[in-house]
């Protein structure tokens, strides 16, 4: 099996890396396009509608048309906005969302996956950088709704980073590794099977914290449209707006991939090729996010914070304790 990670950094290998990154970017863009399509279809079905159906067969090109429209739109920078910050904020928000994908093992052959031995840490660390982009965007817009949205977002994402990390800790304790490739490999041989079984509490905490991290319903306070109009990106238009949307959906994909890798056995599974298993499990995870979105009302900001600190973190800590105790006993 070819592994470019162990090769010396020559010009040719560097070119290979760049090509690999571009391919991943392209794949991710297509995945994002169809994640949006999938979301609109699923929520449409749940509301007895048919969802997008006009552009292309079955509306398959709807997202492409939307992106194209956004690119053609005028790029408005509000007069009283902090121009520089306003312009770079979407980029700050987007870049980490793409970078975290580097450690996700999509298939059994880790062609484009960095075998980083601190993969989980890398993911969590990088994903928090996006918060800077969101707060900056909210602040630079010079709009009260944006500001409130940005600050809420910062408070929420920082709070939920902790239970997210703690819930993953149980998995790390079981597998003894921070490397996502190793974690998947461990799940194939573990006596309890996929980690969703021994780590069910951790999984529940992970899903809740993940939804909150993604700013999705029922935790979509930063962009609570019935209160804050559109939250931190109220003033954004055109492709800068598209960047925010893009990073949001890349994170949907990324966190679904992370959840699949950590709890659902990653690409591991019988009969079907490994990438298909990965795609199926990720789709299931994403479907659950959309399903929740179609059902739940929005939680209130103070309840959201107290839920993180008073419920999720104690439960996650208890899970760690339980995992430690059980792995000592069993």
């Amino acid at each position: 099996m070819f592994s470019w990670q162990t090769q010396p950094l020559t010009g040719l290998n560097f070119l290979g890396m760049v090509i690999g990154a571009v391919i991943v970017l392209m794949v991710v863009l297509v995945v994002v396009m169809y994640t949006i399509y999938f979301e609109r279809k699923v929520i449409g079905w749940m509301q007895n509608r048919i969802g997008p159906n006009r552009v292309g067969p079955f509306g398959l090109l709807q997202s492409a048309a939307d992106v194209f429209k956004l690119l053609l739109k005028e790029d408005i920078v509000p007069a009283n906005a902090d121009r520089l910050m306003f312009m770079i904020a979407p980029i700050i928000a987007f870049v980490p969302s793409f970078m975290v994908l580097a450690v996700i093992p999509y298939t059994a052959a880790h062609v484009f996956t960095a075998g980083l031995n601190v993969g989980v840490l890398y993911y969590i660390a990088l994903s928090s950088i996006s918060i800077v982009g969101i707060v900056l965007g909210g602040w630079a817009s010079n709009n009260k709704y944006s500001l409130v949205g940005g600050l809420r977002s910062a408070a929420q994402m920082i709070s939920y980073e902790i239970p997210l990390g703690l819930s993953i800790l149980g998995v790390i304790m079981l597998s003894g590794s921070l490397n996502l490739n190793t974690i998947v490999a461990h799940q194939a041989t573990d006596r309890f099977g996929w980690y969703i079984i021994p780590q069910i509490i951790g999984f529940v905490v992970f899903v809740i914290a993940a939804i909150a991290e993604l700013n999705r319903t029922p935790f979509d306070l930063p962009e609570a449209e019935s209160e804050l109009v559109a939250g931190y990106f109220t003033e954004y238009t055109g492709f800068r707006f598209a960047f925010y949307m893009l990073s949001e959906y890349v994170y949907v994909f990324a966190i679904a991939s992370l959840g699949t890798t950590l709890f659902l056995g990653g690409w591991e599974g019988p009969f079907l090729p490994s990438w298909l298993w990965f795609a199926l499990k990720t789709s299931l995870f994403i479907f659950f996010l959309f399903w929740v979105r179609a059902t739940m009302p929005r939680i209130r900001i103070d309840q959201l914070m107290s839920f993180a600190w008073k419920v999720l973190i104690p439960v996650a800590l208890f899970n760690i304790l339980l995992t430690g105790a059980l792995s000592l006993i069993l």
């Binding site: 079905w45 007895n48 048919i50 399903w291």
Partner: peptide, 12 residues
Amino acid sequence: VTFGQMTKKKLT
């Protein structure tokens, strides 16, 4: 409830 709606007839 929301899941049960998925298979219902579409009204569009």
